[in-house]
Design a protein around this nucleic acid. Structure first.
Lengths: 163, 163
DNA sequence: CCCGTGTATGTTATGATATTACGCAAGTCA
DNA sequence: TGACTTGCGTAATATCATAACATACACGGG
Protein backbone atom coordinates (compact mmCIF):
# COMPACT_ATOMS: atom_id res chain seq x y z
CA UNK A 1 0.00 0.00 0.00
CA UNK A 2 2.95 2.31 -0.52
CA UNK A 3 2.01 5.54 1.17
CA UNK A 4 -1.74 5.26 1.16
CA UNK A 5 -1.92 4.54 4.85
CA UNK A 6 -0.73 8.00 5.67
CA UNK A 7 -3.44 10.64 5.70
CA UNK A 8 -1.10 13.56 5.24
CA UNK A 9 -3.67 16.33 5.26
CA UNK A 10 -5.53 17.79 2.29
CA UNK A 11 -6.27 15.75 -0.79
CA UNK A 12 -6.44 18.52 -3.26
CA UNK A 13 -10.04 18.10 -4.33
CA UNK A 14 -12.86 19.88 -2.63
CA UNK A 15 -16.45 19.95 -3.69
CA UNK A 16 -18.58 22.98 -3.11
CA UNK A 17 -22.10 24.22 -3.50
CA UNK A 18 -23.53 20.90 -2.62
CA UNK A 19 -26.76 20.85 -0.68
CA UNK A 20 -27.13 17.21 0.32
CA UNK A 21 -26.82 15.60 3.72
CA UNK A 22 -24.00 17.62 5.17
CA UNK A 23 -22.64 14.75 7.10
CA UNK A 24 -19.10 13.65 6.71
CA UNK A 25 -17.20 11.66 9.18
CA UNK A 26 -13.59 10.98 8.58
CA UNK A 27 -12.57 14.07 6.68
CA UNK A 28 -8.89 13.34 6.79
CA UNK A 29 -7.99 16.73 8.11
CA UNK A 30 -8.93 18.74 5.01
CA UNK A 31 -10.19 22.28 5.35
CA UNK A 32 -13.71 21.74 4.04
CA UNK A 33 -14.98 25.32 4.15
CA UNK A 34 -18.64 24.71 3.43
CA UNK A 35 -17.85 21.95 0.94
CA UNK A 36 -16.77 18.39 1.17
CA UNK A 37 -13.22 17.16 1.13
CA UNK A 38 -12.70 14.07 -0.91
CA UNK A 39 -10.73 11.13 0.33
CA UNK A 40 -7.56 10.12 -1.38
CA UNK A 41 -9.15 7.50 -3.60
CA UNK A 42 -12.04 9.72 -4.53
CA UNK A 43 -9.66 12.51 -5.35
CA UNK A 44 -7.49 10.28 -7.49
CA UNK A 45 -10.45 8.99 -9.45
CA UNK A 46 -11.89 12.43 -9.97
CA UNK A 47 -8.47 13.58 -11.12
CA UNK A 48 -8.43 10.97 -13.86
CA UNK A 49 -11.91 11.90 -15.01
CA UNK A 50 -11.08 15.59 -15.12
CA UNK A 51 -7.88 15.03 -16.99
CA UNK A 52 -9.50 12.86 -19.62
CA UNK A 53 -11.08 14.43 -22.67
CA UNK A 54 -13.52 11.58 -23.05
CA UNK A 55 -15.42 9.19 -20.82
CA UNK A 56 -13.29 6.62 -19.03
CA UNK A 57 -14.29 3.12 -18.00
CA UNK A 58 -13.88 1.91 -14.47
CA UNK A 59 -11.11 -0.41 -15.51
CA UNK A 60 -9.48 2.36 -17.46
CA UNK A 61 -9.40 4.39 -14.28
CA UNK A 62 -8.06 1.39 -12.43
CA UNK A 63 -5.21 0.98 -14.87
CA UNK A 64 -4.43 4.68 -14.77
CA UNK A 65 -4.22 4.59 -11.00
CA UNK A 66 -2.20 1.45 -10.52
CA UNK A 67 0.96 3.53 -10.06
CA UNK A 68 -0.91 5.30 -7.26
CA UNK A 69 -1.50 2.03 -5.48
CA UNK A 70 -5.04 1.36 -6.60
CA UNK A 71 -5.31 -2.33 -7.30
CA UNK A 72 -8.87 -3.53 -7.19
CA UNK A 73 -11.97 -2.61 -9.18
CA UNK A 74 -13.88 -2.05 -5.97
CA UNK A 75 -11.66 0.79 -4.96
CA UNK A 76 -12.58 2.54 -8.16
CA UNK A 77 -16.25 1.69 -8.09
CA UNK A 78 -16.61 2.84 -4.52
CA UNK A 79 -15.00 6.16 -5.28
CA UNK A 80 -17.15 6.54 -8.37
CA UNK A 81 -20.31 5.84 -6.39
CA UNK A 82 -19.43 8.60 -4.01
CA UNK A 83 -18.49 11.07 -6.71
CA UNK A 84 -21.72 10.40 -8.51
CA UNK A 85 -23.68 10.78 -5.32
CA UNK A 86 -21.95 14.11 -4.79
CA UNK A 87 -22.89 15.11 -8.30
CA UNK A 88 -19.36 15.73 -9.51
CA UNK A 89 -19.28 12.73 -11.80
CA UNK A 90 -21.77 11.00 -14.05
CA UNK A 91 -22.19 7.50 -15.26
CA UNK A 92 -22.90 7.01 -18.94
CA UNK A 93 -25.15 3.99 -18.96
CA UNK A 94 -25.04 3.32 -22.63
CA UNK A 95 -21.30 3.00 -22.83
CA UNK A 96 -20.43 1.86 -19.32
CA UNK A 97 -18.13 4.74 -18.70
CA UNK A 98 -17.79 7.76 -16.47
CA UNK A 99 -17.17 11.46 -16.86
CA UNK A 100 -16.63 14.33 -14.50
CA UNK A 101 -19.45 16.83 -14.43
CA UNK A 102 -18.86 19.62 -16.91
CA UNK A 103 -20.97 22.10 -15.01
CA UNK A 104 -20.95 22.99 -11.40
CA UNK A 105 -24.32 22.15 -10.02
CA UNK A 106 -25.58 19.12 -11.88
CA UNK A 107 -26.87 17.52 -8.76
CA UNK A 108 -29.85 19.82 -8.93
CA UNK A 109 -30.83 19.23 -12.50
CA UNK A 110 -32.57 16.02 -13.46
CA UNK A 111 -32.54 16.78 -17.18
CA UNK A 112 -28.91 16.25 -17.93
CA UNK A 113 -28.47 15.29 -21.56
CA UNK A 114 -25.37 13.66 -22.97
CA UNK A 115 -24.33 13.61 -26.56
CA UNK A 116 -21.83 10.86 -27.15
CA UNK A 117 -19.83 10.82 -30.33
CA UNK A 118 -19.34 7.28 -31.55
CA UNK A 119 -16.41 8.27 -33.67
CA UNK A 120 -14.16 10.40 -31.51
CA UNK A 121 -15.59 9.35 -28.17
CA UNK A 122 -16.26 12.85 -27.01
CA UNK A 123 -19.04 13.36 -24.48
CA UNK A 124 -20.89 16.63 -24.32
CA UNK A 125 -23.06 17.34 -21.34
CA UNK A 126 -25.95 19.76 -21.42
CA UNK A 127 -28.78 20.63 -19.15
CA UNK A 128 -32.12 21.07 -20.81
CA UNK A 129 -34.77 22.33 -18.46
CA UNK A 130 -37.54 21.91 -20.99
CA UNK A 131 -36.86 18.29 -21.66
CA UNK A 132 -36.63 17.80 -17.96
CA UNK A 133 -39.99 19.45 -17.48
CA UNK A 134 -41.61 17.31 -20.15
CA UNK A 135 -40.29 14.14 -18.65
CA UNK A 136 -41.44 15.29 -15.25
CA UNK A 137 -44.92 15.86 -16.60
CA UNK A 138 -44.87 12.50 -18.28
CA UNK A 139 -43.91 10.82 -15.05
CA UNK A 140 -46.58 12.70 -13.18
CA UNK A 141 -49.21 11.51 -15.62
CA UNK A 142 -48.08 7.95 -15.14
CA UNK A 143 -47.83 8.51 -11.39
CA UNK A 144 -44.26 7.38 -11.67
CA UNK A 145 -41.73 8.64 -9.10
CA UNK A 146 -38.42 9.04 -10.88
CA UNK A 147 -35.24 8.76 -8.88
CA UNK A 148 -32.62 8.90 -11.59
CA UNK A 149 -33.03 9.83 -15.21
CA UNK A 150 -30.72 8.94 -18.05
CA UNK A 151 -30.77 10.78 -21.34
CA UNK A 152 -28.07 9.83 -23.79
CA UNK A 153 -27.84 10.42 -27.50
CA UNK A 154 -25.24 8.50 -29.46
CA UNK A 155 -24.20 9.64 -32.86
CA UNK A 156 -21.69 11.97 -34.45
CA UNK A 157 -20.47 15.22 -33.00
CA UNK A 158 -20.20 18.33 -35.12
CA UNK A 159 -16.53 17.78 -35.86
CA UNK A 160 -16.89 14.14 -36.82
CA UNK A 161 -20.03 14.64 -38.86
CA UNK A 162 -18.05 17.13 -40.93
CA UNK A 163 -20.91 19.62 -40.84
CA UNK B 1 -42.84 -22.77 -22.97
CA UNK B 2 -43.76 -26.48 -22.97
CA UNK B 3 -45.00 -26.49 -26.55
CA UNK B 4 -42.59 -24.06 -28.07
CA UNK B 5 -40.15 -26.62 -29.32
CA UNK B 6 -42.00 -27.54 -32.45
CA UNK B 7 -40.88 -25.57 -35.51
CA UNK B 8 -43.44 -26.97 -37.94
CA UNK B 9 -42.99 -24.47 -40.75
CA UNK B 10 -43.59 -20.80 -40.09
CA UNK B 11 -41.99 -19.49 -37.01
CA UNK B 12 -45.05 -17.90 -35.64
CA UNK B 13 -43.60 -14.45 -35.47
CA UNK B 14 -43.99 -12.00 -38.24
CA UNK B 15 -43.15 -8.36 -38.10
CA UNK B 16 -45.22 -5.88 -40.00
CA UNK B 17 -45.41 -2.22 -40.82
CA UNK B 18 -41.70 -1.97 -40.98
CA UNK B 19 -40.20 0.37 -43.51
CA UNK B 20 -36.55 -0.55 -43.46
CA UNK B 21 -34.40 -2.25 -46.04
CA UNK B 22 -36.81 -4.84 -47.38
CA UNK B 23 -34.16 -7.39 -47.90
CA UNK B 24 -34.34 -10.75 -46.30
CA UNK B 25 -32.47 -13.77 -47.43
CA UNK B 26 -33.08 -17.12 -45.84
CA UNK B 27 -36.70 -16.86 -44.81
CA UNK B 28 -37.13 -20.44 -43.69
CA UNK B 29 -40.31 -20.94 -45.63
CA UNK B 30 -42.43 -18.42 -43.75
CA UNK B 31 -45.19 -16.58 -45.60
CA UNK B 32 -43.89 -13.04 -45.15
CA UNK B 33 -46.82 -11.12 -46.58
CA UNK B 34 -45.37 -7.63 -46.67
CA UNK B 35 -43.57 -8.08 -43.36
CA UNK B 36 -40.54 -9.95 -42.24
CA UNK B 37 -40.49 -13.51 -41.03
CA UNK B 38 -38.18 -14.10 -38.15
CA UNK B 39 -35.78 -16.97 -38.00
CA UNK B 40 -36.21 -19.65 -35.40
CA UNK B 41 -33.75 -18.12 -32.92
CA UNK B 42 -35.13 -14.66 -33.36
CA UNK B 43 -38.63 -15.95 -32.88
CA UNK B 44 -37.71 -17.85 -29.75
CA UNK B 45 -36.04 -14.83 -28.22
CA UNK B 46 -38.91 -12.54 -29.09
CA UNK B 47 -41.28 -15.07 -27.60
CA UNK B 48 -39.49 -14.91 -24.28
CA UNK B 49 -39.56 -11.15 -24.26
CA UNK B 50 -43.24 -11.02 -25.07
CA UNK B 51 -44.15 -13.56 -22.46
CA UNK B 52 -42.23 -11.77 -19.73
CA UNK B 53 -43.91 -9.04 -17.74
CA UNK B 54 -40.59 -7.32 -17.09
CA UNK B 55 -37.31 -6.79 -18.88
CA UNK B 56 -35.15 -9.87 -19.28
CA UNK B 57 -31.39 -10.04 -19.42
CA UNK B 58 -29.59 -11.75 -22.26
CA UNK B 59 -28.49 -14.54 -19.96
CA UNK B 60 -31.99 -14.85 -18.60
CA UNK B 61 -33.17 -15.41 -22.14
CA UNK B 62 -30.38 -17.88 -22.66
CA UNK B 63 -31.40 -19.90 -19.63
CA UNK B 64 -35.03 -19.81 -20.65
CA UNK B 65 -34.16 -21.15 -24.07
CA UNK B 66 -31.75 -23.86 -23.13
CA UNK B 67 -34.51 -26.45 -23.46
CA UNK B 68 -34.99 -25.20 -27.00
CA UNK B 69 -31.40 -25.87 -27.84
CA UNK B 70 -29.96 -22.41 -27.42
CA UNK B 71 -26.61 -22.83 -25.74
CA UNK B 72 -24.40 -19.83 -26.26
CA UNK B 73 -24.77 -16.15 -25.38
CA UNK B 74 -23.98 -15.23 -28.92
CA UNK B 75 -27.06 -16.93 -30.22
CA UNK B 76 -29.13 -14.72 -27.99
CA UNK B 77 -27.20 -11.53 -28.67
CA UNK B 78 -27.41 -12.03 -32.40
CA UNK B 79 -31.13 -12.52 -32.27
CA UNK B 80 -31.51 -9.50 -30.02
CA UNK B 81 -29.46 -7.34 -32.36
CA UNK B 82 -31.76 -8.22 -35.18
CA UNK B 83 -34.94 -7.73 -33.19
CA UNK B 84 -33.73 -4.34 -32.05
CA UNK B 85 -32.78 -3.41 -35.57
CA UNK B 86 -36.28 -4.39 -36.66
CA UNK B 87 -37.69 -2.24 -33.90
CA UNK B 88 -39.63 -4.99 -32.18
CA UNK B 89 -37.38 -5.09 -29.13
CA UNK B 90 -35.52 -2.50 -27.11
CA UNK B 91 -32.42 -2.55 -25.03
CA UNK B 92 -32.59 -0.92 -21.63
CA UNK B 93 -29.11 0.46 -21.22
CA UNK B 94 -29.36 1.31 -17.58
CA UNK B 95 -30.25 -2.19 -16.46
CA UNK B 96 -28.66 -4.28 -19.18
CA UNK B 97 -31.89 -5.93 -20.10
CA UNK B 98 -34.27 -6.21 -23.01
CA UNK B 99 -37.98 -5.81 -23.62
CA UNK B 100 -40.27 -6.37 -26.54
CA UNK B 101 -41.71 -3.20 -27.96
CA UNK B 102 -45.03 -2.37 -26.38
CA UNK B 103 -46.28 -0.41 -29.35
CA UNK B 104 -46.29 -1.28 -32.95
CA UNK B 105 -44.22 1.26 -34.71
CA UNK B 106 -41.45 2.25 -32.38
CA UNK B 107 -38.90 2.12 -35.10
CA UNK B 108 -40.14 5.45 -36.32
CA UNK B 109 -40.10 7.34 -33.05
CA UNK B 110 -36.81 8.48 -31.58
CA UNK B 111 -38.35 9.74 -28.36
CA UNK B 112 -39.12 6.49 -26.68
CA UNK B 113 -39.16 6.92 -22.93
CA UNK B 114 -38.93 4.10 -20.44
CA UNK B 115 -40.01 4.19 -16.84
CA UNK B 116 -38.35 1.41 -14.93
CA UNK B 117 -39.63 0.49 -11.51
CA UNK B 118 -36.77 -0.42 -9.24
CA UNK B 119 -39.06 -2.27 -6.90
CA UNK B 120 -41.23 -4.51 -9.05
CA UNK B 121 -39.07 -4.41 -12.15
CA UNK B 122 -41.86 -3.33 -14.43
CA UNK B 123 -40.91 -1.39 -17.54
CA UNK B 124 -43.34 1.04 -19.06
CA UNK B 125 -42.67 2.32 -22.52
CA UNK B 126 -44.05 5.57 -23.82
CA UNK B 127 -43.49 7.73 -26.83
CA UNK B 128 -43.25 11.42 -26.16
CA UNK B 129 -43.07 13.47 -29.30
CA UNK B 130 -42.42 16.70 -27.44
CA UNK B 131 -39.41 15.39 -25.59
CA UNK B 132 -38.23 13.98 -28.84
CA UNK B 133 -38.62 17.36 -30.51
CA UNK B 134 -36.73 19.13 -27.76
CA UNK B 135 -33.86 16.72 -27.92
CA UNK B 136 -33.83 17.06 -31.67
CA UNK B 137 -33.58 20.81 -31.35
CA UNK B 138 -30.86 20.48 -28.78
CA UNK B 139 -28.89 18.23 -31.08
CA UNK B 140 -29.40 20.60 -33.96
CA UNK B 141 -28.04 23.47 -31.92
CA UNK B 142 -24.97 21.45 -31.07
CA UNK B 143 -24.73 20.24 -34.66
CA UNK B 144 -24.83 16.74 -33.27
CA UNK B 145 -26.18 13.94 -35.47
CA UNK B 146 -27.97 11.51 -33.20
CA UNK B 147 -28.23 7.89 -34.28
CA UNK B 148 -29.77 6.32 -31.21
CA UNK B 149 -31.30 7.99 -28.21
CA UNK B 150 -31.83 6.49 -24.79
CA UNK B 151 -34.26 7.95 -22.29
CA UNK B 152 -34.75 5.96 -19.14
CA UNK B 153 -36.18 6.97 -15.81
CA UNK B 154 -35.64 4.71 -12.85
CA UNK B 155 -37.79 5.03 -9.79
CA UNK B 156 -41.06 3.71 -8.46
CA UNK B 157 -44.11 2.88 -10.50
CA UNK B 158 -47.56 4.00 -9.39
CA UNK B 159 -48.32 0.70 -7.72
CA UNK B 160 -45.04 0.47 -5.83
CA UNK B 161 -45.00 4.11 -4.80
CA UNK B 162 -48.36 3.47 -3.18
CA UNK B 163 -49.76 6.67 -4.60
C1' DC C 1 -11.83 6.91 28.81
C1' DC C 2 -13.94 3.22 26.23
C1' DC C 3 -17.09 1.68 23.09
C1' DG C 4 -20.61 1.70 19.49
C1' DT C 5 -21.57 3.62 14.97
C1' DG C 6 -20.56 5.33 10.43
C1' DT C 7 -17.48 5.80 6.70
C1' DA C 8 -13.57 4.50 4.11
C1' DT C 9 -10.10 1.13 2.97
C1' DG C 10 -7.80 -3.23 1.03
C1' DT C 11 -7.93 -8.06 -0.74
C1' DT C 12 -9.69 -12.15 -2.76
C1' DA C 13 -12.87 -14.31 -5.25
C1' DT C 14 -16.71 -14.58 -8.08
C1' DG C 15 -20.62 -13.17 -10.81
C1' DA C 16 -22.76 -10.94 -14.76
C1' DT C 17 -22.53 -9.05 -19.25
C1' DA C 18 -20.71 -9.00 -24.01
C1' DT C 19 -17.58 -9.93 -27.94
C1' DT C 20 -13.94 -12.16 -31.03
C1' DA C 21 -12.58 -15.67 -34.00
C1' DC C 22 -13.48 -19.49 -36.64
C1' DG C 23 -16.02 -22.65 -39.66
C1' DC C 24 -20.25 -24.27 -41.79
C1' DA C 25 -24.92 -24.07 -44.21
C1' DA C 26 -28.15 -22.11 -47.18
C1' DG C 27 -30.27 -18.54 -50.17
C1' DT C 28 -29.48 -14.72 -53.88
C1' DC C 29 -27.87 -13.17 -57.89
C1' DA C 30 -24.73 -12.15 -61.76
C1' DT D 1 -20.90 -22.05 -60.97
C1' DG D 2 -18.96 -18.92 -57.91
C1' DA D 3 -19.00 -14.64 -55.29
C1' DC D 4 -21.79 -12.62 -51.83
C1' DT D 5 -24.82 -12.26 -47.90
C1' DT D 6 -27.14 -13.80 -43.86
C1' DG D 7 -27.71 -16.83 -40.24
C1' DC D 8 -26.14 -20.62 -37.20
C1' DG D 9 -23.00 -23.20 -33.69
C1' DT D 10 -19.02 -23.53 -30.66
C1' DA D 11 -15.16 -22.28 -27.87
C1' DA D 12 -12.65 -19.05 -25.80
C1' DT D 13 -12.04 -14.70 -23.96
C1' DA D 14 -12.83 -9.86 -22.84
C1' DT D 15 -15.18 -6.50 -20.18
C1' DC D 16 -17.91 -4.81 -16.45
C1' DA D 17 -19.48 -5.15 -11.57
C1' DT D 18 -20.32 -7.01 -6.88
C1' DA D 19 -20.05 -10.18 -2.65
C1' DA D 20 -17.84 -11.30 1.45
C1' DC D 21 -14.68 -10.46 4.83
C1' DA D 22 -11.37 -7.98 7.70
C1' DT D 23 -9.11 -3.61 9.14
C1' DA D 24 -8.64 1.43 10.27
C1' DC D 25 -9.99 5.91 11.72
C1' DA D 26 -13.13 9.82 13.36
C1' DC D 27 -16.93 11.04 16.11
C1' DG D 28 -19.90 11.31 20.00
C1' DG D 29 -22.36 9.32 24.06
C1' DG D 30 -22.18 7.09 28.41
Amino acid sequence: MADAAKPDLAHGHHVQGHAAHDHQGHDHGGARAGGVTLTRNQSLVLGILEKADAPVTAYGILDALRPEGIRAPLQVYRALDKLIELGVAHRLESINAFVSCQHDGCHDVAGTVFMLCEKCGHAEEMADAETSAHLGALALMARFKPARTTIEMRGLCAACAGT
